[in-house]
Design a protein around this nucleic acid. Structure first.
Lengths: 222, 222
DNA sequence: CGACAATTCAAACGTCTGTTTGAAACAATC
DNA sequence: GATTGTTTCAAACAGACGTTTGAATTGTCG
């Protein structure tokens, strides 16, 4: 990213932490990867722990609020939800954004350190509130459902997070070829349709792949 | 669990690996926790790595095929799906089963080591095939959907996995009190209804908490 | 150029890591 | 009780770890 030592250090460390975890990544590997001396960590950051939080800040600070921008408030709620989902999916594989940004935050969220609270406040919470707003606009009263409607929001984002967290499993289950054939647009479309149908704001996920299923809406048996 | 050294070692190691990861857990901590000498690892397992796969095997071998049994084939498919979901959720907090079993396998699946393939074959694959069978029974043709219908299955299980993987986030987002008020039966019900509605096999997730929503089925606007 | 601060470097620091050793303790068999 | 095999133990092993040091290097300004 940046060609100064500090920047290269954050980039190398971010990749290492995201891939092998905090204790799994050694400072010697990181520095070797960044092409700097081991003492550079102490000089620029103080210690390994501070380098870690610097990586976490870098991961948040980047223009990664894609889902928020994508969910343009002037659009109808169905399109907003689709944009939100597509934005979250796209952030995972954005070539302009280092791949480790998402992975590192997911790691932090799954096994929180002391830095987790900050990530949640600055990164997760805004996403959650935007989603809640979209859902409320989509089907009013969802915030009044049990547990403040959180489970509904979780049901939506969980589908997106699955492809980030469990990508290895999906790959092994589907087979490499089939998995690599998945693309962001298809997945965004699937998740949006699945969720909209669950909320009663769209047709059910049924019928063969090519059929538009416009008029042939199947009815529920029971 | 077992009161012999080998058993106590697996239990202590399983907890440590699940909580702090493979490199995060030191053999000295593990042995101290198990009340055995450090050399016991070498004697009973050979090395740390072999102890790790022993933990993984223990996690699979346990009677953790709850979702499979719960999805009784003689029941109607809606009930089978509900049982499957409830079984997966229950496995996470089963008091008869050490808490680390699920956590350890989730860690292995999110960041696979060489042992991941075995876990997938023996533990994940059977679950996936059972779910596929239930979904196919529920709405025939789902296996013929794009990408062999995998995304539909992923949309279902992802909702369940969310509460295992991202429990800390959910807790922080909802607040401790609200999160602790969630129970397995409520979540299973929510996820099953959300998924059935998405598949067009049940009413949408709408209306206030107490309303039975039996006759007041809302219609889609667009 | 000379003076000064910022940065990099090879080398070493003490600590912790996983692993091994050989003797001691235990259990079972004759 | 002696003998055999199994299991545990304190102690030490070499190596990797994160961190620190003080000198060497670079860049910047007068």
């Amino acid at each position: 990213m940046a060609d100064d030592a500090r920047g290269r250090l954050i980039d190398a460390a971010g990749r290492a932490f995201a891939e092998r975890g905090f204790e799994g990544a050694s400072v010697r590997d990181i520095c070797s990867d960044a092409g700097v001396n081991v003492a550079a960590i102490n000089y620029h950051f103080g210690d390994k722990q501070s380098l870690y939080v610097a990586c976490l800040e870098q991961a948040q600070c980047s223009e990664s609020q894609q889902p928020l921008r994508a969910a343009d408030p002037s659009l109808p709620p169905e399109a907003r939800l689709h944009g939100f989902i597509r934005g979250m999916l796209a952030a995972q594989g954005d070539p302009d954004r280092p791949l480790w940004h998402n992975a590192l935050m997911l790691r932090e969220m799954a096994h929180p350190t002391s830095a987790a609270a900050e990530v949640l406040k600055r990164y997760i919470r805004p996403l959650a509130e935007t989603l809640r707003e979209i859902l409320e606009q989509l089907s009013p009263g969802v915030s009044g459902m049990p547990h403040d409607g959180w489970p509904v929001g979780f049901s939506v984002v969980s589908q997106v997070l699955f492809y980030a967290v469990h990508r290895p499993v999906a790959r092994l289950l589907m087979g490499e070829a089939e998995h690599d054939a998945l693309d962001v647009d298809f997945l965004a479309d699937h998740i949006a349709r699945f969720s909209l149908a669950a909320l009663g704001r769209g047709p059910a996920i049924v019928g063969p792949s090519a059929a538009p299923s416009a008029g042939t809406r199947k009815t529920v048996s029971r």
